[in-house]
Design a protein around this nucleic acid. Structure first.
Lengths: 187, 187
DNA sequence: CGTTTTGCAATGCGATCGCATCGTAAAACA
DNA sequence: TGTTTTACGATGCGATCGCATTGCAAAACG
């Protein structure tokens, strides 16, 4: 056999091309041929690593999910208020990394509306996020209803992400809005 | 010539089919043949009323935009606080009408991320909505920064719409969240 | 009443789609 | 060193795509 390649590495390279394609031209621009071209490999190679297009898309979805999770996991602060703020900002397409991932995430969010297999993991992520946010809010400001505040804050962040992506809100304005909203919640 | 038909009416019938298709299976399920089947007409008819698929999609987009606008326009209350609440609830997929339109809107929102021709009118609608909300907030609670509160509230509503569509938040919980959030803003 | 115009239905075309199949160079393994 | 197995590249197939073309029945119009 030819030199043993890193199977997972190859899959990630192709998944990367899928994500770039989605970010630039949307989910329906993803075809085996376009992906192969974007990744600069043959179509046979793409097929070798993914049995079906659907499997490839689901892999790309898991990829960006994990990347976003990793980005959020890399955030930390001793001060709960700062921690909370940093996490919320990390959800928005402000940094280059987030700006690359957010359009892909947005495409999958819309896809989740009509595709339960995408919606389910997102549902789980939502639950975990709300729980984490509620914990932080409770740490900063005891009393009240931290779960409600957490859920509201997450809805706010999700909507703001989309609005920034659509150009309805500038990155600068989005950051100001996060501070404004946090000010309302944490007092 | 055959009996004079109501040209606009026919276009709306086809546009309706497009919207139903998008709501059920997403934007990329829209093909001339699928639309013809959904509308129970021939493909030739679809082509007769829309020169290109793109024109058909843009028409469907304008259709739901106007419908949502009409639904919002039908809301009214003498009490600014109630008015504000009613508008926010109308943005969510709670009523049957809103539940039919929201998935279509969500699909176009995601499309807007990579398609400026869809993003532009949405940008305008966003601006108008923020201005209106700010006015209402100012009427209920003078002082503060109503524009910031309005923008934050709209981001919250947009995100909540998506979350309800994805099943992350139940309609009942969404309504409670709206009241919670309004309580934070209007005091 | 004949002509013209309208509203389609039908068909076809080239492109592209996902996917299956086949062939093969090469390295791991016996 | 021979065999097997891996990693593809190439090609092809049937389905579907958007769109163009053609034909024609019927009603509005002079």
């Amino acid at each position: 056999m030819p030199k043993q390649v890193d199977h997972d590495e190859r899959r990630r390279q192709i998944g990367d091309a899928v994500c770039r394609l989605i970010a630039a031209r949307g989910l329906d621009a993803v075809s085996l041929r376009h992906v192969a071209a974007e990744a600069d490999v043959s179509m046979g190679r793409v097929q070798h690593y993914f049995a079906t297009k659907d499997e490839m898309l689901m892999f790309a979805f898991e990829m960006i999910s994990e990347r976003v999770a990793a980005r959020l996991g890399a955030v930390f602060s001793d001060d709960p208020a700062r921690y909370l703020r940093a996490i919320l900002l990390e959800l928005l397409p402000l940094s280059p990394a987030a700006r690359a991932e957010a359009p892909v995430l947005a495409a999958f969010l819309a896809h989740a509306v009509v595709e339960p297999r995408v919606a389910e993991p997102l549902r789980q992520g939502h639950g975990e996020m709300v729980a984490w946010l509620a914990g932080m809010i409770g740490a900063v400001r005891p009393g009240g209803d931290p779960e409600q505040d957490a859920a509201a804050l997450l809805a706010f962040a999700d909507g703001l992400m989309l609005q920034v992506l659509m150009g309805q809100v500038s990155p600068k304005a989005a950051e100001a809005l996060v501070d404004h909203q946090l000010g309302r919640v944490l007092t």
